[in-house]
Design a protein around this nucleic acid. Sequence first.
DNA 1: ATAAAGATACCGTCTGGACGGTTTGTCAAG
DNA 2: CTTGACAAACCGTCCAGACGGTATCTTTAT
Lengths: 186, 186
Amino acid sequence: MSIAHHRRKQPERVRQQLLEVAARLSFEQGAAGVTLDAVSQAAGVSKGGLLHHFPNKMALLDGLFDDLIGKLDLTIAAEMRNDPVAHGRFTRAYLSGVFALQDEADAQGWQVLTIALLSEPHLRARWRQWVADRADEYVGTDSSSGCLLARLAADGLWLADLLKSHDIDQPTRQEMRAHLISLSQQ
Amino acid sequence: MSIAHHRRKQPERVRQQLLEVAARLSFEQGAAGVTLDAVSQAAGVSKGGLLHHFPNKMALLDGLFDDLIGKLDLTIAAEMRNDPVAHGRFTRAYLSGVFALQDEADAQGWQVLTIALLSEPHLRARWRQWVADRADEYVGTDSSSGCLLARLAADGLWLADLLKSHDIDQPTRQEMRAHLISLSQQ
DNA sequence: ATAAAGATACCGTCTGGACGGTTTGTCAAG
DNA sequence: CTTGACAAACCGTCCAGACGGTATCTTTAT
């Protein structure tokens, strides 16, 4: 019997907390740091409590993935509404989404985690599905080689941030973004 | 007492065999499939034998990383010798290196492994170092935003292959490569 | 030339710990 | 009084690495 037993129960809050902690741990300790024990403990919940919300580890990772995709989708949808030009509209929104993920304060939490997600076949399949769906939906406006290239470059930039391999300063970053946008228009 | 104990000893051959097996396992079973037990057994060597060549698992992964980087360096060096134009020379060679990694027959073996490498902080640092060294060495010829962009896009393509997220056919691929090369020239 | 003396290349077993998951119990709210 | 939200103890498995040995190769002294 511990704190969580006495505090007013807010399961949704706890669930969110678990996801946040998992994201933070993945950043601080790498993918291997995300264990059920570590996550539950850092969230101030017992392992049983964690497994009450997420029946197994895969479900936890799925939840994390949902969060990530959800944010991305929101950004993209908002951006697409503000873009009057049809051609390359999705690609530009995608750029914004990827850039936004990096600029966010809590973006760090996602970074190393994402690698973990990608090494999990099931999550790779989900990502593959996401990409296939968009490619299909926007085949009329965003299938030019310029658009494809722009999106690939954005992925490359995202990867570079993930690995901190190139360190690219803000001006260069903006210049590149402009370059990519122009690619999406041709 | 097994075969390896009686056969003529060729430690270098065994060492190489261990690396190959580790690469293959990483492809067939994912990163999690690369355990000391699995690798040693599949290589026809005892676990003790494996640990004789590589004192711990990290050393094994380091060896794998060395192989990968070594191949990349070879391709790049060869390509740079055949490129008369100084500006963007390294970038074009890098493109060749990345494309070559994907076209090779045994490339598959590296793919999933690479993800594992990247999720290991120590290996990420090594990769970071590699990038920093090249950026430094070729700052005079390959630091334009076009070159940077081309390299990032190559990384994105590499990532897409890794995840099989986009499936890009060979003509499109060649078209993109040409596009990237022209980016490296401007 | 050769035998002794190491050094190197392995083998096979064991262990300690981590980790995912299960089970059973407890408390509070409706 | 039932159900959802947890706690706490526990289990089975897997895995990295240690260890003590044995076989083969290399060097050195004679």
